[in-house]
């Protein structure tokens, strides 16, 4: 896979480069800021761009650069790395895009297997969310009884949580030790309970389900 990297911390950038090389990826460029990455990708092609969230242009150059990149290279995957797993940034990332996008903690991509799995899933168009964040968002109990999400069964919440992590139906089935058919049934129930219409595409509804879910967890009033 062709990967471009923007990270202002030289030590972490070098470490990540070594890991990317060890995983057999082709590095089209490694730079220290968003503007440099944007300039680099005007001439080089990448399957996935990896961006530190907190880098120049300050304060969150990774996000502003990604917006610009998504506009000119909509097919290129984006992986955000950060020292913090925060819902605030997740919301902003989901506003940039809901496919081929990922948000992970820097230290959690610390092995060839995890890094490659993350990049593969993003290149395949999935959303990859740091599990601790997806879990936190799903498990948070809220008082709002009217909330559509609270009508979901425990198993349906499990499925939705894994959807929020960007897992495919087969991936969810594997995690929950059930058949993909059972997962499809749960997802159909989730869509219907959340009132998502059948005329939208499957992928679109998945994203809407996850967003509904995430919003319900934010307690925005």
């Amino acid at each position: 896979m062709r990967v471009a990297l923007a990270e202002d911390g030289a030590l972490f950038r070098e470490g990540l480069l070594m890991l990317l090389k060890a995983a057999g990826h082709e590095i089209v460029g490694a730079v220290a800021g968003g503007d440099e990455l944007y300039a680099l990708l005007a001439t080089e092609q990448a399957d996935v761009a990896i961006l530190d969230i907190r880098m120049p242009p300050e304060p969150d150059g990774g996000l502003t650069t990604a917006e610009r990149l998504r506009a000119v290279h909509p097919e290129m995957g984006l992986l955000f790395l950060s020292h913090y797993a925060e819902s605030h940034y997740l919301m902003r990332i989901l506003q940039i895009g809901t496919d081929g996008i990922g948000y992970r903690l820097k230290e959690k991509v610390g092995s060839v297997e995890v890094l490659t799995d993350t990049l593969d899933r993003i290149a395949a168009g999935e959303i990859v969310i740091e599990p601790v964040l997806a879990k936190r968002l799903v498990e948070r109990p809220r008082g709002n009884k009217k909330d559509a999400v609270s009508t979901l069964s425990e198993r349906e919440i499990d499925v939705l949580r894994l959807m929020a992590e960007g897992r495919s139906n087969n991936g969810i089935a594997g995690q929950l030790f059930v058949t993909p058919k059972a997962v499809e049934k749960h997802i159909a129930n989730i869509f219907s309970k959340l009132g998502l219409h059948t005329d939208a595409s499957e992928h679109h509804r998945r994203v809407l389900a996850v967003l509904t879910y995430l919003r319900s967890q934010r307690g925005v009033g």
Binding site: R54, P59, E86, S87, H88, G143, G219, G221
Partner: peptide
């Protein structure tokens, strides 16, 4: 860090979120 970068609203919502507190933030 979030308080510095995004202000009180974002930081307080994050706090409530992460600690699972029963609170709303306006």
């Amino acid at each position: 860090a979030l308080l510095d970068e995004a202000g009180l609203g974002a930081a307080l919502r994050e706090l409530v979120d992460q600690a699972g507190m029963r609170a709303t933030v306006r």
